[in-house]
Design a protein around this nucleic acid. Sequence first.
DNA 1: AGTGCTATTGAGCATTGCTCAACAAGACGC
DNA 2: GCGTCTTGTTGAGCAATGCTCAATAGCACT
Lengths: 198, 198
Amino acid sequence: MVRLTPDERRRQLLGIGLRMFVDKPVQEVSIDAVAAEAGISRGLLFHYFPTKTAYHQAVVAAAGRRFLRNARPDDGATGEVALEQVTRRFIEQIRRRRAFYVALVFGQGPVSIPTPEGEEEFATTLRARLADLVIERCGYAAAARPVVHAWVAYVEDRAIESSADASNVEVTALVAHCTRALEALQETPTQRPRVPLP
Amino acid sequence: MVRLTPDERRRQLLGIGLRMFVDKPVQEVSIDAVAAEAGISRGLLFHYFPTKTAYHQAVVAAAGRRFLRNARPDDGATGEVALEQVTRRFIEQIRRRRAFYVALVFGQGPVSIPTPEGEEEFATTLRARLADLVIERCGYAAAARPVVHAWVAYVEDRAIESSADASNVEVTALVAHCTRALEALQETPTQRPRVPLP
DNA sequence: AGTGCTATTGAGCATTGCTCAACAAGACGC
DNA sequence: GCGTCTTGTTGAGCAATGCTCAATAGCACT
């Protein structure tokens, strides 16, 4: 019987979930399997997470936090440089761990990533957090939020679909395309239909 | 005991799943509940779907097929007109049944939508099918497929995030923006990085 | 009416999600 | 070194669940 700090144990369980939910969907991963992997009893898992669904959501949220953290630009960076960094880091991350991303982040719909400490029960999605990041750090207007939010979806799809074996050069080109695309999208008017209706 | 055609029964079960999986995730919807809703025994459900996961996937695929079918342009339409129709129908559909779409299509990652009859085990996602639709019907080059595919993700996000209570006029403006956005994205070069690396 | 086909049932089993009272590992005081 | 307190941890136990399979019952056709 190994006794861990609640924090250590929690982290261990989340880490195991991060591995187990990649190949199998929730309903095919049993609490027993997770507990066995951790070397603990079933009961303990329910001491840390009230329900299996709650555990799964916590794992997914952890995955989202991880991607968000790794996509952050350098502390000094702002404007176009920051945008290039965020875009590159986001894309590279997805490509490096494609299956992981698809299973735990992309395939989970609007999964909440609670902001860490204290802030009043605020929760949101990875796309929303990345959009905030771009708006705050790269100098985009708050009014452009819908465009930025959906642009994240665009970049995400390009990263997922681009085959992971492509060379680094292609990644650079993709990053360049995506940063330019954000400007192009932002400049695309939202007012009049281009094809007048009959 | 009510006896139905296998086809009718299958349709009924898929229809029930289409309703049940909107509010609750897979692991919280029991086969018992589905069977009770259909007025049949648990066993029968396993006669139609070998496993619960298979049933869920079939339901999700059905949802995808539905959206794909409703997004098709008119038979005669081509080019820009077809693009406008596909975009509008896709957006309107998502907005009209937002929760449904998010739960069953968006929140399921790369769910396969098998092409109906005969075709050799080909299966793909809703985004891929919509991309094919745009390429074939709206006159886009096959080389633009990655852009079109990710553009679908962009449109999808705009539709999901735009509040459902907005007026019809705003939808028209959004459709116009999205169709223009596809051109803008297509014209955004993928070759050189805009911000040269140090 | 009889016969064949098959959609459907229902008992049954192993596993699963979840609860809870009891246990034991470490920290602290003495 | 001993006792005590706190709390991370266990394991039995239960109802519900996913799934199997032999038996049944509805329907079409002769």
